[in-house]
Write a protein that binds this DNA or RNA. Structure first.
Lengths: 329, 329
DNA sequence: TTGTATGCGTTATCAC
DNA sequence: GTGATAACGCATACAA
């Protein structure tokens, strides 16, 4: 039922080397024998065994992608970017959901190494000590997406600048009392960067920073919803809320709408990421767009360059963000 | 920098068979030598080469999953289900986005075969002739998710019954003039099944079927939005719209809200799937829940059973749907 | 309990 | 142009 190169060789009356040559499109084979071999291949339904091939040639045309969770709306778009480019260069990709769990990360990393992937694209904002050690120890190229704080090729956006730009946009709109729903203060991109951008924008415009206007969440819907309720229950509630992710912003939107607050007249809401859904909501969400697909695609492109020993212009690629003004502001 | 079993053997002063035995946790090794070998492994940072192993033992602990598009909200949840179970059984998964493109499907299928995956999970409502031929020809087990119309193990829901149930729900709510936004009439699940269920429900309640109330779309947001506009522009617009997917329903919602139509007082909107976002909208969406995670998880579970030669109770597993009543109806 | 030797399906080097 | 043959890194039958 399943044939190998030997079977083909026998059937075509040639040696396995010749079969190998035609499979690998070597030019030296006489076109007549080539035809015979191709006939045999077709008749037997022969498929080369990529495992055997990989063992010999020491690459697998396979890469791994580690992300926190594919069911979080943010990541599918990135993965799609990776996959499209990977496919273009004939790579297959192993998908690994880590849930930001240290053990799972290490476990998957080991599995990817053992399966001899040619490269790994890594996503998730914090890279734990242990994982970083592994990255430095392995000879498998790793590229980081969405963050740039370790000594590894990466593609990301400038989160501080982006956050700051959004707050400045709000200020220009006349807001002086702006709530911030941020990520964990330990999360470099969605926690510290967002808060830093927020503070910088306020400071530049001489607006006082008020502790009670910033609430730490976990970037998900529920914490956006709950954070908004807290903010909106303040004696002096904000006139605008900046959520660290669109998902949180959707929670804010829902909370505000439940309370009968008019958007954007009584409350402006802005998010971060530009999820696919954000423009489909009513009212549609103002947000800072992260080029998610490009993050993935360019990340993978960088990886292919590394794998081809092509020169990289830079180890750290910074992509542009943009503020998308819609109906919630 | 990269060591193999031979290096470990030398370092530990044993043969490669012994190293192989401790790596594979064979019980026969004397605990003293086992310790020596483990020390050598640790010191060298040895990682077994899964490719070589696979070549020898003829399985790869790898499966492939083919879906139309990971960036369509429906699939990440399914993939997550697959991955969780796969991970539990120590499988890694190749992610393949086919875009419902025939060529891509064939291409990926070939690639998965060549890479010797142990099994394939297939999703997407139509299985093209060519692909089906390949499935029947290969000896790699394939399980189908979300559809059950070919001679392959599958897990899905009863789409006709589910569609019918939703329409009956609408009728019980007092609606007699119900619009249907369906998928392509060639799509077994989202096209024909939805229409069939709709017709059955109407018929049972003696409601006349009106051609102009059903519009064929492509299951995506835009076609929901546009379909809704057409329906709502009718001289006698429907009092309820049943969209074949939540994504379409979100388009309907947006269209209605733009037109200032009160939901659900003036128009009920119901969808299908129960996407994560659907309960977060305002108003939240009434829909029939497809157990997406379970579809994936159980599909993968079936695959592991096949791979272990465990008995399958049934080749065709039908999961339950449920109607989730929320604010749009 | 451990070691030797063979083969998994390829590619590539070297002859012819 | 083509064919033997030796790796690739491992698991395992068999011997010791």
């Amino acid at each position: 039922m399943k044939f190998n190169i030997k079977d083909v060789a026998k059937k075509a009356g040639v040696s396995i080397s010749t079969v190998s040559r035609v499979v690998n499109e070597s030019k030296v084979v006489k076109s007549e024998t080539q035809q015979r071999v191709m006939d045999a291949i077709r008749e037997l339904g022969y498929k080369p065994n990529a495992i055997a091939r990989s063992l010999k040639i020491k690459n697998t045309k396979t890469i791994g992608i580690m992300i926190p969770d594919i069911s979080n709306q943010f990541f599918p778009e990135v993965v799609r970017g990776v996959e499209d480019i990977a496919n273009m260069y004939k790579y297959n990709i192993f998908l690994c959901n880590t849930d930001r769990d240290r053990d799972k990360e290490l476990q998957y990393f080991d599995a990817l190494e053992e399966k001899q992937v040619d490269g790994i694209v890594l996503m998730g904002n914090e890279v734990a000590e242990d994982l970083y050690t592994k990255i430095k120890l392995t000879n498998i190229p790793v590229v980081l997406i969405g963050a740039d704080y370790i000594d590894v090729p990466s593609v990301s956006i400038d989160h501080v600048k982006a956050g700051k730009a959004m707050v400045k946009y709000l200020i220009k709109k006349g807001h002086k009392h702006i709530g911030l729903l941020t990520g964990k203060v330990t999360d470099p991109a969605y926690g510290v960067a967002r808060l830093e951008g927020y503070k910088m924008a306020l400071e530049e415009d001489g607006i006082e920073f008020k502790e009670e206007l910033v609430i730490e969440g976990d970037l998900r819907y529920k914490s956006g919803y709950e954070g908004a309720k807290m903010l909106l229950d303040l004696k002096e509630p904000p006139t605008a809320i900046f959520a660290a992710t669109d998902e949180m912003a959707i929670g804010v939107l829902r909370a505000a709408q439940e309370m009968g607050i008019k958007i954007p007249e009584e409350l402006a809401i802005v998010g971060f990421d530009n999820l696919d859904i954000s423009e489909k909501l009513f009212p549609s969400l103002t947000t800072v767009a992260q080029p998610m697909y490009e993050l993935g695609a360019i990340g993978m492109r960088v990886l292919t360059k590394i794998l081809n020993d092509d020169a990289l212009e830079s180890d750290k690629i910074i992509l542009n963000y943009s503020i998308i003004e819609r109906e919630t502001s």
